[in-house]
Design a protein around this nucleic acid. Structure first.
Lengths: 148, 148
DNA sequence: ATATGTGCAAAATGTTTGCTATCTA
DNA sequence: TAGATAGCAAACATTTTGCACATAT
């Protein structure tokens, strides 16, 4: 039984073949797939699924707190299993690649800000959009260069 | 001439009546309206605009760096004049209200993270979702309160 | 047995675009 | 006047939904 399927069962969801399939695909994914991609991966394993079901399922899993919906630009929602733990994202603006990272300091500061403004922190979202740096300076190429 | 219109002119945009109108609406807005809302406010001032033009204009202004597009959930893009300075958002999960705040520390840390991961920071997005706290403790009346 | 889930195609939503008329610089 | 822009409606892309049938508990 896949990791995500187990979470579904724990929450008392009725498990159909397609939900099991989608749960499996999610469990085996290490990236942040969108619905179309999930559908593609699912169909490859068992053609008896429809996109509509994928949409319905991710929505359900989001409501149950099993998935988190993300928006990294590009117009489609992308999904992130909640059990990966709290983390943030760095998106490569050129390639669209997403790197996950955790940062306790940000979390602490965010909570403090919420409190200061009279709110209880429910969730926070930190996304950094960046461009890959040229590659670390070639050690010492005859002469060290200074930053421009 | 409205604040935003001035920015358009500075960037050499051809100013039509509708662009002037939209620029004015943006200049007078202190929230983060979506296209439909911008259109509503614009039409109220002068009916000779279409939604298509609002879409085209916000996209143009975004490309020119005059507006920043935001996503606070809810499916529609919302716009934020870039000249308000760098800031982040706290969204009230119950009402959808958005509060702006600045936080230099976050910015510094974000830049450091990007660098550590081998990226140059292009942009960052920090959103805090919170729920309004019950109201500060009735504050021992007869005695002055300290800042939290 | 009964409530719930699925597939399909149609509809809803938000946004973009082709074309012609119009306007700015 | 040349070239960019506006309006309109049709086109798009993504996501939701109504309905008849299938399935899990």
């Amino acid at each position: 039984m896949s990791r995500i399927e187990r979470m579904c069962v724990e929450r008392g969801l009725k498990m159909t073949g397609q939900r099991r399939l989608i749960a499996r695909v999610l469990s085996e994914s290490e990236d942040h797939p969108d619905v179309e991609e999930l559908y593609r991966r699912a169909v490859a394993l068992d053609a008896r699924v429809s996109v509509a079901t994928v949409y319905r399922t991710v929505r359900l899993l989001e409501e149950k707190g099993i998935l988190e919906r993300r928006d990294f630009g590009g117009g489609r929602a992308r999904y992130d299993p909640a059990d990966r733990g709290h983390h943030h994202h760095l998106i490569d603006v050129d390639t669209g690649n997403v790197i996950e990272f955790a940062d306790a300091e940000h979390d602490t500061v965010a909570r403090a800000i919420a409190t200061r403004l009279g709110f209880e922190l429910v969730q926070m979202r930190l996304e950094i959009f960046g461009r890959r740096l040229p590659a670390p300076p070639p050690a010492t190429p005859a002469r060290a260069r200074r930053r421009t």
